[in-house]
């Protein structure tokens, strides 16, 4: 092997190593920070992990929004028209948040079955329904034809 080739080989090895490290980094970060989506029916069926960041979605139940006087704490229920779960949130709700509107919330499920939201998203269009919510409602109404996938992923 000529010195020139040796050097080139070293360069290539260095780059391959770098790419490998960053790929490993990316994959592990991906596994840890992947956000799964669950519907209220799935959560009540015990399919969602507690204490992990997840996303939930559904319609805000009519008449369920309660505010705590003197603070920004709010409690409401999210439903897929069959089952519903309680959500608590502290902060400013999005412009389009209202009862009957489809929302997606990001947060953690507590052991008491209450979902604590860090972020509540309502889409910037009243006619628009988040696709996750649409599917969750269709599945819930369709009589629980949810399939469990290998690896615990839920459809």
């Amino acid at each position: 092997m000529t010195p020139q080739r040796k050097k080139r080989l070293a360069l290539v090895a260095l780059i391959v190593m770098g790419v490998g490290v960053s790929a490993a980094l990316a994959l592990s970060a991906f596994r840890e920070n992947m956000l799964f989506f669950f519907s209220p029916s799935q959560i009540l069926a015990g399919e969602a992990p507690t204490g992990h960041a997840i996303r939930i979605g559904g319609l805000v139940s009519k008449g369920s929004v309660q505010r705590q006087p003197g603070s920004l704490k709010v409690r409401f229920e999210v439903t897929d028209t069959v089952k519903s779960i309680p959500v608590v949130y502290s902060g400013i709700l999005p412009d389009l948040f209202r009862e009957g509107q489809g929302i997606v919330a990001l947060g953690r499920l507590g052991n008491d079955g209450v979902f604590t939201a860090d972020e509540v998203l309502a889409k910037h269009n009243e006619k628009y329904m988040p696709p996750e919510v649409k599917q969750a409602i269709a599945t819930a109404q369709g009589g629980g034809t949810m399939r469990q996938h290998p690896g615990g992923r839920i459809e």
Partner: peptide
């Protein structure tokens, strides 16, 4: 399944 990669993923990587 429906997953999404949030800002933590992008920041970490």
């Amino acid at each position: 399944g429906k997953i999404s990669a949030g800002p933590p993923y992008f920041n970490i990587v």
